[in-house]
């Protein structure tokens, strides 16, 4: 089992959700985050005082999936989140040792 984490532009989220739903992805966790990479922040001005706001708002999606599904999910996120401009985000995959459904106590793939 793998954990797929994607950080994307907030306004692409509906696009990504639709693409994942077509794959039959039945659940995920979403967090509003902020960060920066090659895309730097912006300048805000309050009564003439300038503020450099380095961090850019992003959305982080986390999906636990079985190994054969991982490539399809990555493809779906990549194509639905991309705008072609700096700041589109990243997707990474990490191993997951165990998963357990809280309600039933099921473990492994049955809990996904």
């Amino acid at each position: 089992m793998k954990l797929i984490t994607a950080v994307i532009r907030p306004h692409r989220w509906e696009n990504v959700r639709e693409a994942l739903e077509l794959l039959g992805i039945s659940g995920m966790t979403l967090t509003e985050v902020s960060g920066y990479g090659r895309q730097k922040g912006h300048t805000e001005v309050y009564r003439g005082a300038e503020y450099d706001v380095l961090l850019v708002p992003k959305v982080r999606i986390e999906i636990v999936a079985e190994e054969p599904d991982v490539d399809g999910i990555i493809q779906a996120i990549q194509s639905s989140a991309a705008t072609g401009k700096i700041g589109d985000g990243k997707i990474w995959v990490s191993p997951v040792e165990s998963v357990q459904r809280v309600r039933t106590g099921e473990t492994g793939p049955a809990a996904i």
Partner: peptide, 9 residues
């Protein structure tokens, strides 16, 4: 924290 502001004077 995430406001991340750095004022210029």
């Amino acid at each position: 924290a995430t406001g991340g502001s750095r004022p210029h004077f």
